[in-house]
């Protein structure tokens, strides 16, 4: 595993960000995005679903490529919290 250690720092944190946080973030983004997308109802539901697949891949790769592991974590946390808030507000 020495190669990976030299290529990626904070590898456990990166695994955590890439495998778990990214999946949770994009899942929460599906209902969150439907609250503000200015589209027809089928597109409001459909487009976040289709974007899910690409966004997950982007977050996954970004979690490993970012110089500092906190960058992807911060970006994803912000997206997670904002979309969760939007979803809860929409429900209320």
């Amino acid at each position: 595993m020495s190669s990976r250690r030299t290529t990626f720092n904070h590898i456990k944190m990166r695994h955590f960000a890439a495998c778990l946080i990214s999946l949770v973030t994009v899942t929460v983004m599906i209902p969150g995005m439907s609250t503000y997308l200015p589209l027809s109802t089928p597109d409001k539901i459909g487009l976040p679903i289709f974007l899910f697949l690409f966004l997950w891949a982007v977050f996954f790769i970004y979690s490993y490529l970012a110089k500092n592991v906190w960058h992807p974590l911060l970006v994803m946390s912000l997206l997670l919290v904002s979309h969760l808030t939007l979803s809860i507000l929409a429900l209320q």
């Binding site: 899942t27 599906i30 209902p31 439907s34 109802t41 539901i45 976040p48 679903i49 697949l53 979803s87």
Partner: peptide
């Protein structure tokens, strides 16, 4: 195949429940 396969696999498990969360309570 990756895109459609991911959609078909995750549709009923993650995607539809998540999409229905806000729009259809």
């Amino acid at each position: 195949i990756a895109f459609t396969g991911a959609f078909l696999g995750l549709a009923t498990v993650i995607l539809i429940p998540a999409a229905a969360f806000v729009t259809f309570n």
